[in-house]
Computed example of a mutant assay.
Amino acid sequence: MRMRDLLIASLAAAFLPPPAHSESSVKLGIGRTATDAEIAGWNIDIDRNGTNLPPGKGTVGLGREVFDQQCAACHGPKGEGGVGDRLVGGHGTLATPKPIKTVGSYWPYATTLFDYIRRAMPYPSPQSLSNEEVYAVTAYVLHLNGLLPESAALDAKTLPSVRMPNRDNFVGDPRPDVK
């Protein structure tokens, strides 16, 4: 008998209209407005032009060290892939039946690489690298793809100037409401 009553109550609730008050008048008594400092802590996105890049500088050499310690277990010792995505190679494959989409073959902006590493890597500890380490790993991955020399260093001024091979061939979202 109890199960039947529960079923009837559930069905009735599913078909009842919502309460007559607006969302803005509902006070749940939970949460709070984020502070400016809290918002700034999450406002770390970098656009293709390098807007919002942080201070710091990283070299290919430091990037190799950090990559070996933090990235190679998933992406392979030279970025060839493994548990994680392949980061290197794929040049000239995008127009083939089996394209290999890597940082060096597919990504249109080096700043996107920095942004992704900074936000999401290393797994499972995203945002644990310093700005210098993120610049360094970015430099190393670009070096592995033949885009930077061994002696290169990246910072907020030099990173946006790295010219990616697929920059002019990347197709953006054609929807007019997407920027």
Rank of each mutant, 00 (worst) to 15 (best):
L94V: 10
L144N: 07
D36V: 09
V141W: 06
N52T: 03
I117L: 10
P17S: 06
K98D: 13
E80S: 02
V103T: 08
S151R: 13
R2G: 05
N43H: 14
R163G: 03
A153L: 09
P99Q: 04
W42S: 13
T33K: 13
A73F: 09
R167V: 15
A110I: 01
T35F: 03
S128D: 13
E65S: 12
M3A: 11
D5S: 07
Y123V: 14
N131S: 12
F114E: 02
G82S: 10
K78E: 05
T96D: 06
R167I: 12
D36K: 15
L87I: 10
L94I: 15
V137G: 04
Q127C: 06
T138E: 08
G81S: 05
K179F: 14
L94Y: 04
I46G: 00
N145Y: 14
A12M: 01
L87V: 01
P149G: 14
A120N: 14
W107Q: 07
A139P: 10
H143Y: 15
G61Q: 13
R163K: 14
S161R: 14
E38F: 00
I44D: 08
E80K: 11
L16E: 08
S161D: 03
Q70S: 11
K157Y: 04
E132I: 07
R2N: 05
D168Y: 08
E23C: 10
F114C: 00
M3F: 13
V162T: 12
V83M: 06
S22T: 14
A12F: 06
D115W: 08
P165E: 02
N52H: 08
S24G: 04
A14V: 00
T111H: 00
V88G: 06
V141F: 10
T96K: 14
N169L: 08
N43G: 13
D47G: 09
V134F: 04
I44R: 15
H91R: 15
V66C: 08
G104A: 07
V103M: 11
M121K: 02
P124N: 11
L129Q: 01
P54Q: 11
E65N: 12
D47S: 09
G50W: 00
D5W: 12
T102L: 09
V83P: 00
M1H: 11
I100Y: 06
G31M: 12
P149S: 12
L62S: 01
G104I: 02
A120H: 15
N145D: 12
L113S: 04
G76W: 02
R118I: 01
H21K: 13
L154R: 08
A9W: 07
V60I: 13
G84S: 05
T93M: 03
T33L: 10
E23W: 07
T93G: 01
R163N: 07
G84A: 03
I100F: 08
G58I: 11
H143V: 05
D173M: 09
S128Q: 13
K98E: 15
L159V: 11
L53E: 04
V171M: 06
P18I: 02
I117A: 06
D155A: 09
H21Y: 15
V66H: 08
